[in-house]
Design a binder for these strands. Structure first.
Lengths: 340, 340
DNA sequence: AGGCCGTGTTTGATCGTTCAAATTGTCACT
DNA sequence: AGTGACAATTTGAACGATCAAACACGGCCT
C-alpha cells in the first residue's frame, strides 16, 4: 500500500507514525546497526505504509551535492546515432552510480563555459561529461583552472593528456583489426578513407590503417583519402581512388558515413552485390540496415560510459585525485559479405 | 572579476559584504522595486564581485519544486536520429522555460513506473515528457491516476485523447503533402509503404496517403504495403509491389527507413539514378546524405518541444488545468530528383 | 505631543534532511 | 549505593533561500 499523496511525506511524519524521533528514522535508513532491531522494523513499516522517500532537495542542501552530472547536448549532425547510444549508456551508468544525468544546451562556445560555471555555482550539478572534445579544446583548461570536475569521452588532443581525465577507445587498434579482417579475406590493396589530417582521432585511425598494412607487408601509397564527413564528397573521393590504375579492392573507413559513401561509389556486380568490400567505424544502425549489412568497428559504449562516470565520481568525491586516462579496445563486428 | 571559490558563496556572505541583511539581497534579486536604488546598486555590486548565484537545492527545498523535467531514454533502434534531435530541442525548450532536463533509464516497463514514482516522490523532477507512447499505453492512466504531471510527444492512441496532454504532428497531412508533391511531378501510381495496421500513427499516415490519392482521383488498390520497420524486410515488400503488372512509379513511406528500403529495391537506371521516386518521413540525416538526396516529411521538432514543455509547465504549476492536445503540421522538404 | 501612514529594511520561522552533541536507560563492577 | 561504560534514542543546530510579519524612521495631520 502506498501513501495517498504522491509527494510530500516527510521524515517527521514517518517518525510520528512510528512513535520515534526523526533522527531515528534517518538512522534506520542511513546507518542501520545504530538502531535496535524492533525499532528499525517498526520504522521500516511506517516508511512502507506512508510511501516515504527522502526529499532530494533537502538532502542536496544538507550534503552540498546534487548527485547530478551535467551533459551539454548539441544539435546532432551526421548519420550515426552514436550520441543517442552514448547518452543512453551514460544515463544508465550514472543511474547505477547513484547519479542523474542533466542535459542542457548552449548557443555558442562563450555561452557554453558560462553555462558550465552557472550550473556549478548554483550547485545544480556536481560535474560534467564532455563528449565533443576538439583539438586544443579551450574548455578543458578553463574548467580545470576553476577546479570544476569533468571527464572527457575522447582524448584531449593537442593538450597534455596527463592533465585531464578521459576514457577513449584505441582507434588505431580498431582500424588495424579491420585491416586484418580484410587481409584474411584475401584483399591486398586496402584503402583508407577518413577525415583530413588534424582531427586527432582521425589521424590516429589512419595511423592504425598504415601500421596494419605495414605489418602485413602491404604498401599504402596512393591508397589514402581524406575529406569532410559528407556522403557526397566522400563518394567522390572514393571514386577517384577507385579510378586509379591499380584500384583498391577494399576500404577501411574513419566512420560509417565514409563507408556508406564507399558503398555508393563502388557500385554493384551482376548479382547486385557491392564490388568493393568496406569496413566502417561506429557500428551505427545504418551499417546493420544496409543490404548486405556492413562490417564495422564497434566502440564499447556501455563500458566507456561506466568508466567515464567512475572517473567523474572519483574526481567529485576526492578533488585531490590526479587526472586519469582510460584506454579501451574497440571490437570489429564482422558481417562478412558473400565470399570471394 | 569572479569569486575565488567556484561554489559556496551564500546570500549571507553577499549581505555582509554589502552591509545589509540577507533578506534585502533576496529582495534585490527577486523583488526589485521593494529596495532603495542605492542599496540595490550596492548589493548588486557585491553579488557581482563575489560571483554569487543562489543555491538551487535551497531554492528547491523552499519552493517545493525542482524545476526539472524527467525524460526516460531507452536504447535507440532504427536509423533515424529523431530521438537525438528531439532531445536537443527538448533540452533547449526546457532551458528557455527555466527548467532542466533530467535523463534516466529503466530496465523494463514495471521498473519504469517505479522510477517515475520515485523521481516524483523524492522531488527530483516536477513532471515528465513521454516520447514513446504505444497503443493503449498503460503508463498514461497510471501516471494520471497518481496526479503526476506529464505530457506526451505523440497522441495517446487507443485511449481517450481528451484525458491527456500531448503535442503531435498530423501524420496524415504530411503524407498527403508527399502525395501532392509526387502527383505534381507526374506520378499516378503512387504506393505506400509503412507499418502494419495497429500502431496508431502508422494507420494515420497510411490514411493520409489513401485520402490524398482519392482527392486526386487516383486508385489505391494493390499499392499499399505494411511490414516491420527493417530495411531488408521492407525492401522485399517494396520489391513485390514493384513486381506487379502495373507497378507503382513512386512511393510515399511511413519513415525514412522504409524509404531507404524502397531506394534499394527500386534499383537505378543507366545514369545511376533511382528508377522509383520516393518520399520519406522524419527527414533524418540519411535522407540528406543519400545520393541523390531524398525528399522527406519533416516534423517541426523545435516547435513540438516548445509546446510539450509549455503544456507540462502549465500542468505542473496549475494542477487543475484540464488536459490539452496540440496538433502541428509537418512540412514536406522537397529535394527533387532529376526531372522526368 | 501623539497618532497615522508609507517606505525601506530586518528578524524569525520554515522547507526536509543529517551531523554532532546531549540525554536517557541498563547493566556491571567496586 | 555509587560510579563508569555502553547502547539506544533524542534534541539542537545547520545547510541556503524565501515568506510573513515586525520594526525603524521620517513626514504629515490633528
Amino acid at each position: 500500500m502506498i501513501g495517498r499523496d504522491s509527494s510530500g511525506v516527510t521524515i517527521s511524519q514517518v517518525a510520528a507514525a512510528a512513535g520515534v524521533s526523526r533522527q531515528t528514522v534517518s538512522n534506520v535508513l542511513n546507518r542501520p546497526g545504530r538502531v535496535a532491531p524492533e525499532t528499525a522494523a517498526r520504522v521500516r513499516r511506517a516508511v512502507e505504509e506512508l510511501g516515504y522517500r527522502p526529499n532530494r532537495a533537502a538532502q542536496n542542501l544538507r550534503e552540498r551535492a546534487s548527485r547530478c552530472i551535467g551533459f551539454k547536448i548539441d544539435s546532432p549532425a551526421g548519420m550515426s546515432n552514436l550520441l543517442d547510444r552514448f547518452l543512453h549508456a551514460l544515463a544508465d551508468a550514472a543511474g547505477t552510480a547513484g547519479y542523474h544525468l542533466l542535459l542542457f544546451t548552449s548557443a555558442g562556445v562563450d555561452e557554453e563555459v558560462v553555462a558550465y560555471e552557472e550550473l556549478i555555482r548554483t550547485g545544480t550539478v556536481d560535474g560534467f561529461v564532455l563528449a565533443d572534445v576538439g583539438v586544443k579544446d579551450r574548455r578543458l583548461p578553463w574548467l580545470a583552472k576553476r577546479g570544476i570536475p569533468f571527464v572527457c569521452f575522447g582524448r584531449p588532443w593537442g593538450l597534455d593528456h596527463a592533465r585531464f581525465s578521459w576514457a577513449d577507445v584505441d582507434g588505431a587498434s580498431g582500424v588495424a583489426q579491420a585491416v586484418d579482417h580484410l587481409v584474411s579475406r584475401g584483399h591486398r590493396r586496402i584503402a583508407y578513407l577518413g577525415w583530413p589530417a588534424g582531427t586527432g582521432f582521425g589521424d590516429e585511425r589512419q595511423s592504425g590503417w598504415r601500421e596494419g598494412m605495414r605489418r602485413h607487408g602491404l604498401g599504402d601509397e596512393g591508397l589514402s583519402g581524406g575529406c569532410t564527413e559528407d556522403v557526397a564528397v566522400a563518394a567522390a573521393v572514393a571514386g577517384s581512388l577507385l579510378a586509379r590504375p591499380e584500384p583498391p579492392t577494399a576500404f577501411v573507413c574513419g566512420s560509417d558515413t565514409y563507408a556508406v559513401a564507399v558503398r555508393l561509389a563502388g557500385g554493384t556486380d551482376a548479382g547486385g552485390y557491392p564490388k568493393v568490400e568496406v569496413v566502417g567505424f561506429d557500428d551505427s544502425p545504418a551499417a546493420t540496415l544496409m543490404s548486405p549489412p556492413m562490417s564495422s568497428v564497434r566502440q564499447p559504449l556501455a563500458e566507456i560510459a561506466r568508466r567515464v562516470v567512475g572517473l567523474l565520481v572519483e574526481e567529485i568525491q576526492g578533488p585531490c585525485t590526479p587526472p586519469e586516462g582510460v584506454m579501451l579496445r574497440p571490437e570489429l563486428v564482422s558481417r562478412p559479405e558473400p565470399g570471394r
